[in-house]
Simulated assay, not measured.
Amino acid sequence: MLNLERLRTLDALARHGSVSGAADGLHVTTSAVSQQMSKLEREVGQQLLAKNGRGVRLTDAGRLLADHAAKILSQVEVARSDIEAQRGQVVGEVRLAAFPTAARGLFPAALTSLRAGHPELRLRTAELEPESGIRAVLRGDADLAVVLDWSNKRLPVPAGLVKAELLDDAPDIAMPAGHALAGRREVDIEDFAEDDWVSWPEGEFCYDWLMFTLRSKGIEPRIAHLAGEHHTQLALVAAGFGVCVAPRLGRGPVPGGVSLVPVRQPMRRHVHAVWRADADRRPSIRAAVEALRAAGRALPADSRGPVTAGTPL
């Protein structure tokens, strides 16, 4: 009989493409992965891995068994969901991921609520950018990810995932206090056509959104500085090195010398949770979504927009 944990190791190898990636995803050592694969090869009587330079690759038999392993593990997840749903108890473990400002703005309140209401539920969290969060859920490395898109640029959600809206986040434009537009009640993003911008790093979804948005206004962006942390972006703005988009969720204290002005045109970050469809009936997943929604509702009214229509629970 095939061992489920060894099939899980093979599945992780197929998804991550390396022993080290599989070890990280499974939270075990690389030697543990190698040992599990050696035992699985003895069980099936075939070579499943072959050397590939400094790494390994799956043999034809390995790919065939990995395809079956993915189906078996998905069915196990469905069975677990059904059992949890029948018991109606929020137990076990939930692994949550979120992009940094959502982790900062939602996790403390949501986790506190879950710990108080469901003491038998184990919680693990990680900060991941939206695309990485979605990949982690698809790979099975996270049970639920908090991700985002923008009102004018959506983040594709792959088939096999369920999505639920949490809140809309209303961003401002951050500029040096001495900027000519600092005293305005509202601004348009195209008002900053001649300004240097402080942006998220290239390749991130929000960087792509900023480039898309400015170019849609006929502006070729002048991206002067790249910083992943919003606090770093605001520090650069305070020092007079440009302007940036400053979402309100998880923003925290704003340094002196920075002026925040709302954007006149509707511009929202849509924040939502995603999880695998085969885990949809798990009470723990639904409890986590409700806790995240409650954390969003508890934010000050001026730090968020209305929640858009989404998947009901």
Rank of each mutant, 00 (worst) to 15 (best):
A182F: 09
A182D: 09
A182I: 10
G183K: 15
G183I: 03
G183E: 15
G183M: 12
R184L: 14
E186C: 09
V187H: 06
I189S: 12
I189W: 07
E190V: 11
D191Q: 14
D191H: 14
F192D: 04
F192E: 03
E194Q: 15
E194P: 01
E194N: 15
D196I: 00
D196F: 00
V198F: 04
V198Y: 01
S199G: 03
S199A: 15
S199Q: 02
W200N: 11
E202W: 03
G203V: 08
G203Y: 11
F205A: 11
F205V: 04
C206M: 09
C206E: 13
C206F: 09
C206L: 09
C206N: 10
Y207G: 00
Y207A: 08
Y207N: 13
Y207S: 07
D208G: 14
W209Q: 13
W209P: 01
W209N: 13
W209C: 04
L210Y: 02
L210T: 01
M211S: 12
M211W: 08
M211N: 11
M211Y: 08
F212V: 06
T213N: 12
T213C: 06
T213A: 15
T213W: 05
R215H: 07
S216K: 11
K217A: 05
K217Q: 06
G218P: 05
I219E: 02
E220L: 12
E220S: 13
P221M: 06
P221F: 06
P221Y: 05
P221G: 08
R222M: 01
I223G: 00
I223F: 09
A224S: 11
A224Q: 01
A224P: 01
H225Y: 10
H225L: 08
L226D: 00
L226V: 00
L226G: 00
A227Q: 11
A227D: 11
G228K: 03
E229N: 09
E229R: 13
E229F: 02
H230F: 08
H231L: 02
H231A: 14
T232A: 12
Q233E: 14
Q233G: 12
L234I: 10
L234Y: 05
L234S: 06
A235P: 01
A235G: 13
L236A: 08
L236G: 03
V237S: 07
A238S: 13
A239G: 10
A239R: 12
G240A: 07
G240V: 06
G240C: 07
F241E: 13
F241N: 12
F241Y: 11
G242W: 02
V243W: 05
C244R: 01
V245R: 04
V245T: 10
A246P: 03
A246S: 15
P247Q: 12
P247L: 10
P247Y: 10
R248C: 02
L249K: 02
G250V: 04
G250F: 04
R251N: 05
R251H: 03
R251E: 04
G252N: 07
G252R: 06
G252L: 03
P253S: 15
P253M: 13
P255N: 10
P255Q: 09
G256L: 13
G257D: 08
G257S: 08
V258N: 02
S259Y: 07
